[in-house]
Structures are given as structure tokens and as C-alpha cells.
Design a binder for these strands. Sequence first.
DNA 1: CAGGGAGGTTAGCGGTCGTTAACCTGAGGG
DNA 2: CCCTCAGGTTAACGACCGCTAACCTCCCTG
Lengths: 203, 203
Amino acid sequence: MATRTDAPTRREQILKEAARLFAERGFHGVGVDEIGAAVGISGPGLYRHFAGKDAMLAELLVGISEQLLTGAKRRLAEAEGVAGSGAGAEAVLDSLIEGHIDFALDDRPLITLHDRELDRLRDADRKMVRQLQRQYVELWVGVVREVYPAVAEPSARSAVHSVFGLLNSTPHLGRPGSLPGRAVTAELLHRMARGAFAAVGGE
Amino acid sequence: MATRTDAPTRREQILKEAARLFAERGFHGVGVDEIGAAVGISGPGLYRHFAGKDAMLAELLVGISEQLLTGAKRRLAEAEGVAGSGAGAEAVLDSLIEGHIDFALDDRPLITLHDRELDRLRDADRKMVRQLQRQYVELWVGVVREVYPAVAEPSARSAVHSVFGLLNSTPHLGRPGSLPGRAVTAELLHRMARGAFAAVGGE
DNA sequence: CAGGGAGGTTAGCGGTCGTTAACCTGAGGG
DNA sequence: CCCTCAGGTTAACGACCGCTAACCTCCCTG
């Protein structure tokens, strides 16, 4: 599956810089000239690679949602391949949390965009992103209810959304340098997420 | 101190509608004409009440920050008036959580703005908001470390930010109608917040 | 009853932004 | 050696947006 070690294509450069700028100043707060300047070309040159500013945001958001969902499905399948059921659920939940934390720590601008600029999309794109997000949430809900069978579905769904809020708080934790180390932060977030779920499950 | 039961002034109407619109479409995504239309006047009429669009956002964000900090200080003082120390810390933390949840549930647009549009402020306003936010965080950190003395300060601060992320997830919990009831949601969030802190404190 | 301020209105200016048009250039292939 | 085409460039257009100017109309008050 050829993990990409190639140099990034121009398209990828643009997407990365656009994500950073959108996260910093908001979709409407960034001009196409700035995005172009960030990759060394100027303004309208972007239109050789994207149909428009909207298309960049759409590709970013759809990409994020797909990546999250695909990763979660893979983790679920891997863990179910090992054990039959029961005790495995805890491990799956841990794996989901770990995956989400990796994403939140490594792609902070994307995490920021993910729940901030969704409404700027054209209808078709927004529906697609919403659907992917819903699938991701429902996957978590299923695992959570397997670990804590006493929790009703609406509560589980609220709990999942709230834990996402917790995990997605990484952009507020100070710039990468000031953190006490990536591994320590990841461990802290992981424990808090488990603690939050446990508080719902342990009536 | 005359708890306001009066009809809302025009200024307050404008601020409320502006908050809603800013939260829905972002600061740059809303025009002054739309804000005016939302309160029944049109466009430039707003300038009889505010110096400009920026001033509305500034007043909103400073107001939120002051309200949060003031409420937290009051709760801290009240609880310290009752008990001397020790066992009271738990009660103070519960009170802080309760206050933050009330705010997150009752003023969702403001919660959304609070961590989303801060960068659109003029330097002076942004510094003031940041300072108020910092005081609020530090107040929480102090209480958390009183309840869980084993937690180092940087961890406590990260934990507080993350719990804010958890509590501020209310805008993602579905529109007010679909919630299982305000009291139930508040209880759920409260338990999750306590569970998250406990997971950090109970090594 | 004069007058003045509070709170509106519409017209319009200046700047910015997304997008298109027209043109240029260098590398690869027949 | 020419042709093509990917990937740039600058100029410019049309729309929109924040804000000001100029004006109007009540309502209160001396």
C-alpha cells in the first residue's frame, strides 16, 4: 500500500497551506492571493489546480471525514479479527480513541476546520461530509454500547460527541512547543476520554 | 442589583441576533445588512448603536469572558464562605462545572463564538479577552489541584482546557428539541467532566 | 409651540474579493 | 525543429461589503 514518501505534489501543498490559513483566519477571512502566496505562486494560478476556493474547502473536509471513517473501520476490523467479542470491545474503544488522538495531534488545522467551516460547503458536499461524520459517530456509539451495555443509545451518542469535543481541544492546548511532550499529552487525553465514558457507563 | 426583567433594549436585540448569525456563518460570512434585517431595521441603521461591525463582536466576546469569570469568582467566594477548606473543594468544582454547563446550554451561539472568532478582534480587545480567559482557566486550575493535589500544574491546565472542550460540545448535540431534556443533558455532561478529571487525578 | 436629539431611511463611495481572459514560457515528443 | 500543453503570469471585471453622507420623522421638553 505504498506509504507515500514522495515529494508532495503542488496540489497537496496547496491543500495543506489552505487548511492552515482557513483554520487560522476562517474560510471567508482568507483570500485566494494569500493561499497562492503561501505556495509561491500568485492568486489566479490556483485555478490550474482547483475549480475554485470552495472546491479546496470541500476536498479538505471530505478528505478528513473519509480518513477518520476509514481509519476507524480498519481498527474495528483488525480488533474483531483477533478476539471473538466481549473483552475485545475495550481494546477496540482504546484503539478508536488512540486513532482520533493521533489525528487531533498531527493535523490540528484539519480538526479545527472539521467542525467550524462545514456550513460554507455547497449542499451536495455538505451532505456527503455529514453522512461520513454520522457513520463515524455511529461506529463509536456501537463500540461504546458494547463496553457499557447499560447506556441508552441517545446518551451514548451525546457522550461520543462530548468526547470528540474533549479530544478536539488540542488546538487550545498551546503551540506544539509548549506541550509537555506529544506522548504525555496523548496519554492524558486518552485517560480523560476513558474516564468520561466510564462516568456515563458506571451508573 | 435589579435583575433585568425589562424588555430588551435595541442594543441587546442587535447583540443577540449578531451572536446567532456570527455563530451560524462566521464573522466574515455575515453582512451588516443581514444583522439589521434580523432586528427589523436595515443596514446602516446599526451605526446609531455601534461604532462598527468589529465593535459588536468585541462587545460580545468581552461580555462572555467577563460573565464567565465573574460567575466563577462568585461561586468560589460563596463556597469558601461556607466551609473552611478541604472537603469544600469538591463542592466548588461541582459548582464551577454546573455554571459552565448552564452557560453552554443557554447561550450556545456565544459558546461557539468564544473559541472561534477571537482572532478577528482588534489587538486591544483580543488581549483583554485573552486575559479574562486566562484568569478563568487559572481559577479552574487552582480548584482542580485542590481536589487532586497529585496532578502537576501543566497537566491540570491541559485537563481544564480539555474539559472545556467537552462541555462546549453542546452545539454538536443536536438542536434543543432533540435533546433528551435539559436536566438530563446537564447531568450527563457533569458526570463526564468529573469522570475526566478523576481519570487524571487518580493515578 | 419651537427645537433638538434619538433613531431611522436611501444613495453612494472606496476597497476587496473570487473569477475569467489573454498571454507567456519551458520541457518533452514526433 | 516545431507543436503541444501544463503551469504559470498580469489585467481587469463584476459583485459585494463596510461605512459615510445627507436627509427625514417622531417624541420629548422648556
